[in-house]
Design a protein around this nucleic acid. Structure first.
Length: 356
DNA sequence: TAGGCCATCTGGTCCT
DNA sequence: AGGACCAGATGGCCTA
């Protein structure tokens, strides 16, 4: 439809009429100026980017413009409006109109590319924030907010050197987020945290679920906590069935994940630090090169003093910060998870820690 | 159907 | 002059 506008310059005045709002009473706004000059004759001369104030209009090197005088469009005689000041417009010849249109086409293409790049970067950002869902993408603004909160939370962890409480961590992450996004994030984190729950905790999971995230309604908790994936012996991954994944899908992606295998995918960017246990959920057999890279990427955070190259969890954060019976042990940014063959011991240790 | 989100077009401004 | 960046406008799509 806008292409229709573009292809039909006669429709552009309507667009400019709407865009040329005049809130400024002083008339200094460029858009107000546009409106002041919006006579039909002006439109013939300034359609597309043919406005007289554009630099291209002042070049004076246009062959077709040579000898073409400006025109006042009869505006001087229009009512009691003051004479138009400033540079006068040049008559738009067919060649100039065509050139303007071509410039506009190129500019539009560049703008599209620019926005696509921006969206690409945003997609990458989505993959590294603690909640990543292929089925329910975070909006742009929510992605930025969550990323900001995430950075802030990590900074606090680094600054304090203490292991944060899970609830506080979630609260920090969800600060300023909309309710649906809050639910989504809480759901992601809770789902992953749940992987550390014992069977008993799972069965009476309402205590954990409602207690941990009581500040927000969480519509998934009951269904998920009672889902078959939570049953003893269940080997299926709960995240897949719900479409949520904080980092699991982006890291390990499911073998057939088209997104993960997409050529656009620039590598495992999911955060090695997150409040979930998805590192431990990695199955041993899927050590694809991408996954390997993912583990290596996770090492980025594992080099702090005290971290060991073994699967043993370091105790940088001590053991405080447990609320509602659940430790935020999975908030362990400095866990050494970089060797996938060590993941099973890591999982065991984490589990053991949670069962304390 | 209203509102949120998004892609696109567009013109203005600044910079090289 | 041309490109990058920005913000406003617009219409489409989706969901509650």
């Amino acid at each position: 439809m806008l292409t229709r506008l573009f292809s039909d310059p006669s429709l552009l005045p309507d667009v400019q009429k709407y865009s040329g709002w005049a809130e400024d009473s002083d008339g200094e706004s460029s858009k107000v100026k546009d409106e002041d000059q919006d006579t039909q004759d002006d439109m013939e001369g300034s359609e597309l980017i043919g406005d007289s104030r554009t630099q291209s209009e002042h070049g004076g090197d246009d062959d077709e413009d040579d000898g073409v005088e400006e025109e006042d469009d009869g505006e001087d005689t229009e009512g009691d409006r003051p004479k138009k000041r400033g540079p006068k417009k040049r008559k738009m010849t067919q060649a100039r109109i065509e050139r303007s249109r071509m410039r506009r086409v190129k500019a539009n293409a560049r703008e599209r590319t620019r926005m696509h790049d921006l969206n690409s970067a945003l997609d990458n950002l989505r993959k590294v924030v603690p909640c990543y869902s292929k089925t329910q993408k975070l909006s742009k603004i929510e992605t930025l907010r969550l990323a900001k909160n995430y950075i802030w939370a990590l900074s606090e962890i680094l600054r304090s050197g203490k292991r944060p409480d899970l609830v506080a961590y979630v609260q920090t992450l969800c600060k300023g987020l909309s309710q649906p996004t809050t639910n989504l994030v809480a759901g992601c984190l809770q789902l992953n945290s749940r992987n550390f729950l014992t069977e008993q905790q799972c069965q009476d999971g309402g205590r954990y679920a409602s207690g941990s995230f009581s500040m927000h309604s969480y519509p998934y908790q009951c269904a998920r906590l009672s889902s078959p994936h939570c049953q003893p012996g269940s080997n299926s991954h709960p995240l897949r069935t719900h479409g949520y994944c904080s980092t699991y899908d982006s890291l390990y992606g499911g073998s057939g994940s088209p997104e993960y295998n997409s050529p656009e995918y620039e590598g495992p960017l999911s955060p090695p630090l997150c409040v979930n246990g998805n590192f431990s959920l990695k199955h041993q057999g899927s050590a694809s090169p991408e996954n390997e890279k993912g583990y290596h990427y996770s090492m980025h955070y594992s080099g702090l003093p005290g971290s060991r190259p073994t699967g043993a969890h370091n105790l940088v954060f001590g053991s405080s910060g447990s609320r509602s019976g659940i430790h935020s042990e999975n908030v362990l940014p400095y866990h050494d998870m970089h060797l996938h063959h060590e993941r099973a011991p890591v999982y065991d240790e984490l589990n053991a820690f949670f069962h304390n």
